[in-house]
Design a binder for these strands. Structure first.
Length: 507
RNA sequence: GGGCCAUUAGCUCAGUCGGUAGAGCACCUGACUUUUAAUCAGGGUGUCGCUGGUUCGAGUCCAGCAUGGCUCACCA
């Protein structure tokens, strides 16, 4: 649906689209410089520019680069003028390098041009590499090209941009002036790549399943709602790819994975962003024990590939990601930490009174089932204490509607979650492939939904239909990429590993 | 959603008891051909988040609102 009447008020704007009254002095001066540049016949916004080297390469290979001629480009980050000669640092994607420009070398006209440039301007330079008296590797400029005029002043060179709100809202500025931020996102990119390499090498096939779904399934969460105009169709942004990936197992793909976004219409916190990245994989003829082995191997090898070590420091705590992680059934973990033995507590009623008797401070709902209460006790008493990587096994069936029941205890499932630093990093199970049980589980969820639980699963008839054709037994695994990257980059907030986190509009 | 905190120049931050709005960086003018948080001389560039209130007088006190941060709740 195209909009035909876009509001355009160019009359009140000056070139650049900013209204004149919004311009402070610093921006006004830069616009004047821009106009002056044009008047003198220089184009402030250049074109293709071929570079021979990066800043990093020159710095790292000074021995072979000394006195070599180089062409590079970057943003001016600092300037030190001394009459007929100037020093400056320019920054490209690899780092900063000093340049030295003398009137004698480039001629008075070019030198004059350079001396009027601002911090933030993007230029190309060519010249030869040398070391200054103080030992800094520097490019002695022989000529320069204007590539982009910057019309806004950058934050201060010494303190950088600290205002958290501005850093998230204008990430591009954050990235320009705070080099450590860039490093976080490089690590994020390498992490995702490492996952792909690992899984591809294991024979998994990367697939893409719908982001917009008729029935949002595969997780317990409130979805975002959207609408398709020509079909006049209510659609949901997916909360998980799970049910579609398992349809692929039915279709005959044995090993599939997807790394992509999920959307959940819930609270925002240091650990939750409405859209986040999930890796989900399914392996036919495997079970949750295989998934534990795979999780360990995958995360430790990804850490090794990205950081060169399986020993990480997170917020002052040393975490050891080398394989051999603790595997403990939920019942046992809860018993150890709370004293409550849910293997002898058999009913919801007994569970309610046991919690009360133990004096555990929990908000219990009368409708809570045995499994709900077990999970709440776990969340409260156990989860925060799981600092080193720990697999918690055998979740109650009530909160695991897609997992296979344990053969020796139908109240529990072959499901585990991985916790590191008190946070859930992975969730996995032996997939439920009995269509009749699955339909019954969905029906239970639908009841919960009718009772007002907006997060309960919906009935997905087509998924049942798929299971009825026969799905091979399989292990499935989901890993929250953002939270894992937080661990690998030692960042406290999920917003620090998301380039453009969701922010309320300012006005 | 609740609680606490923050919001002052482009950026980082001061601002006392309610009495004419401050610093550093950046910027402007001038000097300076190996500087590096360059230096030296001069220049303050502002809707003190917004709206009300109290007061002779509000950046400062009060109320409401907005945005953000932390936290609790919610939530994988």
């Amino acid at each position: 649906m195209g909009q035909k009447n876009k509001e355009t008020d160019l009359s009140a704007a000056i070139p650049g689209g900013v209204k004149e009254e919004d311009l402070n002095d610093l921006m006004q001066i830069r616009r004047e410089k821009l106009n002056e540049m044009r008047q003198k016949g220089y184009e402030p916004y250049g074109n293709r520019f071929e570079r021979t080297h990066s800043a990093r390469f020159i710095l790292d290979n000074y021995g072979e680069m000394e006195y070599k001629h180089v062409i590079l480009a970057g943003r001016i980050m600092s300037k030190r003028g001394m009459g007929k000669a100037s020093f400056a640092h320019i920054q490209d994607s690899t780092g900063k390098i000093q340049i030295y420009i003398r009137s004698n070398d480039v001629g008075p006209e070019t030198y004059e041009f350079f001396s009027k440039l601002d911090i933030g301007d993007i230029i190309g330079v060519h010249g030869s590499v040398f070391k200054t008296r103080m030992g800094e590797v520097t490019v002695a400029v022989e000529g320069l090209n204007m590539l982009a005029k910057s019309l806004r002043p950058l934050p201060e060179k010494w303190h950088g941009l600290k205002d958290v709100e501005l850093r998230y809202r204008q990430r591009y500025v954050d990235l320009i002036v705070n080099p450590e931020v860039k490093e976080v996102f490089v690590i994020r990119s390498k992490t995702v790549r490492a996952f792909r390499n690992f899984l591809d090498a294991k024979g998994f096939l990367e697939v893409e399943t719908p982001m917009m779904q008729l029935i949002p399934g595969g997780a317990t969460a409130k979805p975002f709602i959207t609408h398709h105009n020509t079909l006049d169709l209510k659609l949901f942004m997916r909360i998980a790819p799970e049910l579609h990936l398992k349809r692929l197992l039915v279709g005959g793909f044995d090993n599939v994975y997807e790394i992509n976004r999920n959307f959940r219409n819930e609270g925002i916190s240091t650990k939750h962003n409405p859209e986040f990245t999930m890796m989900e994989l399914y392996q036919a003829y495997a079970d949750y024990n295989d998934m534990m082995d795979l999780t360990e191997e995958m995360i430790s090898s990804v850490a090794c590939e990205v950081l060169g070590s399986t020993l990480i420091d997170y917020q002052g705590t040393e975490i050891d990601l080398s394989p051999g992680w603790t595997r403990i059934p939920m019942l046992e973990a809860v018993k150890v930490r709370s004293g409550l033995d849910f293997s002898v507590i058999k009913t919801a009623g007994e569970a309610h009174s046991a919690v009360k008797q133990a004096g555990i401070n929990l908000e219990l709902d009368p409708a809570d089932t045995w499994g709900d209460i077990l999970n709440k006790v776990f969340d409260e008493m156990v989860e925060p204490k799981l600092i080193q990587p720990t697999f918690i096994m055998d979740y109650p069936v009530e909160i695991s509607p897609l997992a296979k029941r344990k053969a020796d205890n139908p109240d529990l499932t072959y499901r585990f979650e991985l916790f590191i630093y008190g946070r859930e990093i992975a969730n996995a199970f032996s997939e439920l492939n009995d269509p009749i049980d699955q339909k019954a589980r969905f029906a239970k969820q639908v009841e919960k939904r009718k009772a007002g639980d907006e997060e309960a699963h919906m009935m997905d008839e087509d998924y049942i239909n798929a299971l009825e054709y026969g799905m091979p037994p399989a292990g499935g695994l989901g890993i929250g990429i953002d939270r894992l990257v937080m661990l690998l980059t030692n960042t406290y907030s999920i917003r620090d590993v998301i380039l453009f986190p969701l922010m309320k509009p300012r006005d």
